[in-house]
C-alpha cells in the first residue's frame, strides 16, 4: 500500500445544531490500495462517516482530506466534479433506475464524468461481461435478481475507473454467493491500486478488509488492521 487516499482530521458532524454529534473529532487515514470497513452498530454513524468522506455532506467541524489536500473550501461544483471523476458509489439496494435498461444504468455515472455515449457503452459492456451480467444488458432492473442488480451497481461504480469506491452496506441484501462476488470484486479492485471504503455490519465482510474503523456509538472510533484481527 502507498500513501493516504483520503483521511479525516478532527472530523465532527451532528444532524442538527444542539443535537449530540454522530461523529466527533475523529482522525484517521485511508491508505491507497486498501479495503477499509467502517463498522459499528446501527445508528453508530458509519453511513454518515462514509458520506462525509465522499464529500456528500459538509462536516460540522474538522476536515476531510483528499490525497493530502483539504476539501472544506471546495464548492458544490468542485466536490461534484471530484465525485464524478474520482469516486464510485455502491448503495445497499443498488438504486438502479427501474425505467432504464441495465446498460443505461451502468452508463449513468459516465454522464456526469463527461464521458461520451459510445465510450461509456463500450466500457459498460466490458464491465458487465467481467461481472457475468452481460446477458442482462438490455433487461430492466425489475427483471434481474438482487445479486445481479448489485453487480450492475458495481459496474456503474467502476465505469469511470475511480480512485476510491464507496459502498454503503453493499452486501446487506445479498445471499452468501452474491456477497462473495461483490467482496471479491472489491479485493481485486484494491489489488489493482484502487481504494475501497465500505460501511457494513457484516462481520465476515469486515474481517476480509485491510483495515476496520469501528464506530463505538459515542461518536468515537477504534482502528484495527488485518494483522490484528
Amino acid at each position: 500500500m502507498m500513501g493516504a487516499a483520503l483521511g479525516a482530521r478532527d472530523l465532527s458532524f451532528a444532524y442538527r445544531r444542539g443535537f449530540p454529534p454522530v461523529v466527533s473529532q475523529v482522525s484517521f487515514d485511508v491508505p491507497t490500495g486498501a479495503v477499509v470497513a467502517l463498522t459499528g452498530a446501527s445508528g453508530s454513524g458509519k453511513s454518515t462517516l462514509l458520506y462525509l468522506l465522499a464529500l456528500m455532506i459538509h462536516p460540522g467541524g474538522g476536515e476531510v482530506t483528499w490525497q493530502g489536500r483539504a476539501t472544506s473550501r471546495l464548492s458544490d461544483a468542485e466536490r461534484s466534479r471530484l465525485r464524478a471523476s474520482r469516486m464510485g458509489f455502491v448503495f445497499q439496494d443498488a438504486l438502479l433506475d427501474p425505467g432504464r435498461t441495465v446498460l443505461a444504468n451502468v452508463c449513468d455515472s459516465g454522464l456526469f464524468a463527461g464521458m461520451g455515449h459510445a465510450q461509456a457503452r463500450a466500457r459498460a459492456r466490458e464491465l458487465l461481461a467481467r461481472f457475468d451480467v452481460a446477458h442482462r444488458a438490455d433487461h430492466r432492473p425489475g427483471e434481474i435478481s438482487g445479486g445481479q442488480a448489485q453487480r450492475v451497481a458495481l459496474c456503474r461504480a467502476l465505469l469511470t475507473d475511480p480512485a476510491v469506491v464507496f459502498a454503503d452496506e453493499p452486501t446487506g441484501n445479498l445471499d452468501d454467493a452474491s456477497a462473495g462476488v461483490v467482496i471479491d470484486a472489491f479485493t481485486d479492485y484494491a489489488a489493482g491500486g484502487g481504494t475501497v471504503v465500505l460501511a457494513t455490519h457484516d462481520h465476515d465482510l469486515a474481517a476480509r478488509c485491510d483495515l476496520q474503523i469501528r464506530l463505538t456509538g459515542d461518536a468515537d472510533l477504534v482502528l484495527t488492521d488485518k494483522e490484528q484481527l
Binding site: L82, A84, F112
Partner: peptide, 21 residues
C-alpha cells in the same frame, strides 16, 4: 477517463439522457 468536463454533462449526452428520462 474522457476528455469531457467532469460534473458537467456534454450537451449531446444531456439531451440523450433527458430524452431517455
Amino acid at each position: 477517463m474522457s476528455g469531457g468536463w467532469p460534473g458537467v454533462p456534454r450537451v449531446g449526452e444531456l439531451i440523450r439522457d433527458a430524452a431517455s428520462a
